[in-house]
Amino acid sequence: MPSSDRPLVSLTVAGIARRGDAYLLVEERIRGQRYLNQPAGHVEPGETLLDAVIREVREETRFGFEPTGLLGIYHDNPGQGRRVLRVAIIGEIDDEPDDQPLDSGIIAARFMDRATLENAEIPHRSPFVTAAIRDFEQGYCYPLDLLHSIR
């Protein structure tokens, strides 16, 4: 297959954390538009999936994050545009965030219950947001040892 025909994939991670009935989310600004998302981002070269999710949650929310389970692996393959593979990881967060500034583009870290999120005026960054919450509430949780890093 010619290299121009190979699919382009972005490998991302998302941290799924809940306190009571509310999920940890971020409000972010992308190209001038506000969106809601889980704390999430790209896996950097040399990072494991777990290293990446711990870093992303801290950078975007200032909460420490301890991974506890694998929620799922989500693939978006639109007819055009970038294809995304997102690994959603469940975890526990610290009681309080640290006092460092939020990552560039992040407006605020927020806790929202499912109903508030579903009825929010701010659009979701992608269908991954509600898919992950739906799967979490259905009890999906797999052992972290399913994730292997080969360096």
Rank of each mutant, 00 (worst) to 15 (best):
G79W: 12
Q80M: 07
Q80Y: 14
Q80T: 14
G81F: 06
G81Y: 02
R82Q: 14
R82S: 04
R83H: 13
R83N: 10
V84C: 04
V84K: 12
V84G: 06
L85V: 05
L85Y: 00
L85E: 11
I89C: 01
I89H: 00
I89K: 00
I90T: 09
I90F: 06
I90E: 11
G91K: 03
G91C: 11
G91Q: 08
G91E: 12
E92V: 14
E92D: 13
I93V: 14
D94K: 02
D94W: 00
D95H: 12
D95C: 07
D95L: 14
D95A: 15
D95V: 10
D95W: 02
E96I: 04
D99I: 02
Q100L: 13
Q100P: 00
Q100W: 04
Q100R: 11
Q100S: 11
P101Q: 03
P101R: 14
P101D: 11
L102Y: 08
L102W: 08
S104P: 02
G105C: 01
G105E: 08
G105N: 10
I106D: 03
I106M: 09
I106A: 04
R110Y: 00
R110W: 01
R110F: 01
R110I: 14
F111Q: 02
M112R: 07
M112T: 08
D113I: 11
R114T: 14
R114V: 09
R114F: 12
R114C: 04
R114A: 07
R114I: 02
A115Y: 03
T116N: 05
T116P: 00
L117M: 15
L117A: 10
E118N: 09
N119V: 01
A120W: 02
A120F: 09
E121H: 08
E121M: 05
I122S: 03
I122N: 09
P123M: 08
P123I: 05
H124T: 13
S126A: 13
S126L: 05
P127E: 09
P127N: 13
P127I: 10
F128N: 05
F128M: 09
F128P: 09
V129I: 06
V129T: 10
V129K: 09
T130A: 07
T130E: 07
T130R: 12
A131D: 09
A131G: 01
A131Q: 13
A131T: 05
I133Y: 08
I133F: 13
I133G: 06
R134F: 02
D135P: 03
F136M: 10
F136C: 01
E137R: 06
E137L: 13
Q138W: 00
G139D: 06
G139W: 10
G139S: 11
Y140H: 14
Y140E: 08
C141S: 14
C141P: 02
C141F: 11
C141E: 15
C141G: 06
C141V: 12
Y142S: 13
Y142P: 00
Y142L: 15
Y142H: 11
Y142Q: 13
P143W: 03
P143H: 07
L144M: 04
D145F: 12
D145P: 05
L146D: 11
L146R: 15
L146E: 07
L147I: 15
L147S: 02
H148D: 09
H148N: 09
S149T: 15
